[in-house]
Nucleic acid binder design. Structure first.
Length: 939
RNA sequence: GCCCAAGUGGCGGAAUAGGUAGACGCACAGGACUUAAAAUCCUGCGGGUGUAAUAACCCGUGCCGGUUCAAGUCCGGCCUUGGGCACCA
């Protein structure tokens, strides 16, 4: 089989006959819209990952077409971007030259792979006839107040000479190139995506997407429900508002923190603290994102010399600034509750701020008529041998720590020290930590009483001069003192109170869980949820605060200081106002430049185009915006343009959109989860709100293809070029059908899979085996062959279902099983031979077109009807089922389908090996699962 | 640290309303064809005990425990790998 000749022949045929042209106005058939993530046309051409997703959609499209659907299967190019610009900077050529060349290569390669795209619908985001409408949508966003020009801190990358959006910054470095990114205040174009947070969140419930991707979007949107609380600043007219999700802990707030950038800082800072505060603010502004996150273990901050009034108890609490409070989230100010928040706890420890516990964990089971007591539990650690002191009460209560009831006029610490002396004789210990109080319910057998105790935990350490004197144990205290390891305690201390106390001792910090409120006046005794809602009502009644929802998602930074992107179609007028261009002035085309370099100061290359720059609008002078749009602009709506790509009056006709949207199947990588896939949803939702598109959600079903790894199991790329595979090399060696077939057979579409050179050859061998069956074996005849009937129908069923659900690897397995069966037969009925070729066609279109022609057909197989199967021909009359004795397989029997249980049991019991295993035992029962298995239970 | 996936032969992977684990392929071994090799076709192929060969038995789906007549599949607790978030109050 000469794959080269066959491929060239059919590429030409499909083009000349317009086999895959979509009649977009034909509404008579059901529609199917399959979308691939269009590629950035880089200089290196397709990589091994491209054909994977593209083949998957192609298979489904080819089958759907044969099933009678009107299929829309377009392709285009995401052609604005950095590499073209860098090429232009280097060579002085226009980036479009480079881009168009690459598009040509990509198109040639995509055609070589046999994808059934309708190339008449091709779009390129850098084509003015396309970006005219990108600009038009932006203009609408601007006029509706959703695209804004604001002064804000941005991610500035000096190396790239541009700002970046949040999803383009990874660990404080640029996604592209890995250059450092710093925060910088700049006038910026942003899109108010937070306005759509709730809609984007709710929309996720309506679409068939991978749960993991939905979860990533949910986390990125980051909805949290809480409250705003206003604090007055003591002895000043000022106040500030904080956002908190834990207003139930307000009684435990022992300080407040403003972000360093908070506007109130300069107004309330005391004279003495002024210099320190200003130095700290300066320090923070110079920190990069990387420094801010990497240094997060060590809290820093400065006291302002001012105090806030806690609105629920009128306590004065100090106000600090610290960069652990972000200006960009909530109100840029917090109330700090160190007892119940990890970060506040760390900060309070470092700055010696009081920690007030207002919530205690509840252990044990509550009971009526409990007696209340206060008590202590003391954990003592010996650093010399890494062991802890326990009392082994043996049968009376197992292993416990030192415990006891607090007497009147005794503090918990005094009680602990007294109990330690009495029970162990230890003296002169170092107190490491006082642990959070625990609310414990238990039943005392010796006293026949229920108790509810509030227990304070203590964690002590032996010191060098710790001594042990004779303890004064009481007579009924029958325990032995034992020093044991951490592991023994975890395994042996079963008492909830003591186990929990030990957990606190091992891991001291804030108590962030649920529990019982204490020290909180009207909240005492309530759990977290009850206390939150009661506190919100309390605050709202007194006008001190209110319920509030906050989102983590930030404004989408929508400008780049670069050349190769869509010009932002607005003019800055002399009077400071900004106007959008008229529709008739769109597209605003990029001017040609001599030098495309960006500037290190953040000035766009477009500033150099002086003729283009200066305009007069209605007699007023103005300058054009010189930033361009980010890469994700053009890709945020391209799926709409495919439906009506040549429309000059509107971005797409509404009636056509109504018929063709939403996209039925979208296949692409998971790396766009919080970029493109979120931005597209936002634009579509916006256009829906404007009545310009008919459906809220653009992509009904989304599937991520996995990564094709190198044969070493590691991501292909520059690091291991020797393990990388160029798909075009495979096409040249074995043909496009083999590449498509192999990539589909490797494993599940969604999984990452390593490349295997011998695996490719295996796929090639199978295709050759099919080719030989049809060209040299002489088995095909007009006579029927009953021996193949069942497997024939079964194969149609399995393959059809598996294509529909994108389980291509198991579909291929079935195709192989069928061919293996045919090889064993002398006679291969013609109707089966033809239907098999149809089933294989979506995966291996070139070879199957050629065979189809050899079978005597004049027309392309692509227009043939899809094979049908007969369910009744698949059902077996006799089947073999397993026989187990006590769950172990001992034999198998052949039964007719749906045979009576009695007969099945009789047959099963007769089996020799079954008898053997029943010998000397009594039959308990026989479990028969119809047509599946028999299990005989004996004793 | 938190959230989400996934761990099955030498390898890629099948099998989940719980019901004969290892389909299909790769690699490997043997055979046929050939002067020979390649290609092709046929057969075998989880590990072990056992047998002349069968038969039969034991162990096996990351680890430990549980539910069940029956667990790769369900539940609890770990371990490992991959992905996402990362001072979000």
């Amino acid at each position: 089989m000469n794959t080269k000749l066959i491929e060239e022949k059919w590429i030409k045929y499909w083009e000349e006959h317009q086999t895959f042209k979509t009649d977009i106005n034909d509404f008579s058939k059901p529609k199917f819209y399959a979308l691939d993530m269009f590629p950035y046309p880089s200089g290196v051409g397709l990589h091994a990952g491209h054909p994977e997703g593209y083949t998957a959609t192609d298979i489904v499209c080819r089958m759907k077409k044969m099933q009678g659907y009107n299929v829309l299967h377009p392709m285009g190019f995401d052609s604005f971007g950095l590499p073209a610009e860098q090429y232009a900077i280097k060579t002085g050529n226009h980036p479009a030259v480079f881009t168009n060349e690459n598009i040509k290569t990509f198109k040639y390669q995509l055609k070589s792979l046999g994808f059934s795209y309708d190339w008449d619908r091709e779009v390129s985001t850098s084509d003015p006839s396309y970006y005219k409408w990108t600009q038009w949508i932006f203009k609408n966003l601007f006029n509706d107040g959703l695209a804004k020009y604001v002064d804000m801190p941005v991610n500035w990358c000096e190396e790239l000479g541009t700002v970046l959006s949040n999803d383009e910054v990874i660990n404080g470095k640029s996604e592209r190139g890995g250059y450092p990114v710093v925060r910088k205040n700049m006038k910026q174009w942003v899109i108010d995506i937070p306005k759509y947070a709730e809609k984007l969140l709710n929309g996720l419930d309506e679409i068939d997407w991978p749960e993991s991707t939905k979860e990533i979007q949910r986390n990125w949107i980051g909805k949290s429900t809480g409250a705003l609380v206003t604090f007055k600043v003591k002895d000043t007219p000022y106040d500030f508002t904080v956002f908190t999700t834990r207003c139930d802990t307000l009684f435990g707030a022992t300080y407040c923190v403003l972000s360093p950038e908070h506007e109130l800082v300069s107004k309330i800072t005391s004279q003495e603290q002024k210099e320190k505060v200003e130095n700290y603010q300066k320090e923070c502004s110079l920190k990069s994102d990387l420094e801010r996150t990497e240094l997060n273990k060590d809290k820093t901050g400065v006291f302002l010399g001012a105090y806030a009034i806690n609105p629920v108890n009128n306590e004065s609490i100090p106000i600090y600034i610290s960069d652990y409070v972000l200006a960009s989230y909530g109100t840029g100010a917090i109330m700090a509750v160190p007892a119940h928040d990890e970060r506040d706890y760390d900060f309070a420890l470092k700055f010696n701020i009081p920690i007030i516990q207002v919530l205690e964990e509840v252990t044990g089971t509550p009971h009526e008529n409990e007696e209340k007591k206060n008590s202590i539990v003391a954990v003592i650690y010996n650093p010399q041998n890494d062991k802890y002191l326990t009392l082994n009460w043996h049968s009376l209560g197992g292993r416990l720590f030192i415990g006891g009831t607090i007497k009147d006029n005794e503090t918990p610490l005094e009680c602990a020290l007294r109990e330690i002396t009495e029970e162990t004789g230890l003296q002169n210990l170092e107190l490491v930590a006082t642990l959070p109080k625990i609310n414990h319910h238990y039943y005392a057998y010796n006293k026949n009483k229920y108790f509810n105790i509030e227990s304070t935990g203590f964690f002590f350490k032996l010191k060098d001069d710790s001594i042990m004197i004779e303890p004064k144990k009481e007579e009924d205290e029958n325990f032995t003192l034992e020093w044991v390891s951490k592991e023994e305690i975890i395994n042996e201390v079963k008492d909830e109170l003591h186990a929990k106390t030990f957990a606190y001792a091992l891991n001291p910090g804030a108590m962030v869980g649920d529990g019982n409120h204490i020290n909180s006046e009207f909240l005492n005794g309530l759990n977290k949820e009850e206390a939150i809602s009661k506190m919100i009502s309390y605050l709202e009644e007194r006008n001190l605060g209110k319920k509030q929802i906050n989102y983590r998602i930030r404004d989408w930074i929508f400008a780049r200081q670069r050349y190769w992107g869509e010009p932002i179609p607005v003019v800055h007028l002399e009077d400071g106002s900004i106007v959008a261009l008229k529709d008739s002035e769109l597209p605003l085309v990029l001017p040609e430049l001599k030098d495309y370099s960006p500037s290190k100061t953040g000035a766009s290359p477009l500033l150099k185009a002086t003729d283009w720059l200066n305009v007069t609008i209605d007699g007023q002078k103005g300058v054009r915006e010189t930033s361009t749009m980010p890469g994700s602009a053009g890709s945020s709506w391209y799926f709409l343009r495919y439906i009506d790509p040549h429309n000059e009056k509107e971005f797409a006709n509404y009636e056509l959109l109504k018929h063709w949207m939403p996209v039925d199947l979208y296949v692409g990588g998971p790396e766009h989860a919080v970029g493109h896939l979120l931005y597209s949803r936002m634009w579509n939702n916006y256009l829906y709100d404007k009545g310009l598109v008919p459906y809220k959600e653009p992509f009904k079903k989304l599937v991520h293809q996995g990564m094709i790894l190198g044969s070493n199991g590691i991501k292909m790329g520059k690091r291991y070029p020797e393990y990388s595979v160029n798909p075009m090399d495979i096409v040249n060696l074995y043909g496009a059908d083999t590449l498509r077939f192999y990539e589909m057979f490797m494993g599940p579409l969604q999984a990452d899979k390593p490349w295997s050179d011998t695996g490719v050859i295996g796929s090639k061998k199978f295709l050759d085996r099919v080719w030989n069956l049809y060209t040299t074996e002489n088995k095909i005849s007009s006579e029927d062959n009953k021996a193949l009937e069942k497997i024939y129908h079964k194969t149609i069923k399995k393959v059809t279902e598996d294509y529909e659900t994108l389980n291509f690897n198991t579909a291929i397995s079935q195709l192989m099983i069928f061919i293996n069966a045919v090889y064993k037969e002398k006679n291969y009925p013609r109707y089966m031979a033809e239907d098999f070729i149809k089933l294989l066609n979506p995966i291996a279109p070139f070879m199957t077109e050629e065979i189809w022609e050899k079978l005597g057909h004049q027309e392309s197989i692509a227009n043939e009807p899809w094979p049908k199967y007969d369910e009744t021909k698949i059902v077996d009359e006799e089947i073999e089922i397993g026989v187990q004795v006590n769950g172990k397989l001992r034999s198998s029997i052949v039964i007719s389908v749906d045979e009576d249980d009695e007969k099945v049991q009789e047959k099963a019991l007769k089996e020799e090996n079954v008898q053997k295993h029943m010998e000397g035992k009594t039959l308990v029962k026989v479990i028969i699962v119809k047509n599946k298995i028999v299990n005989i239970v004996v004793k």
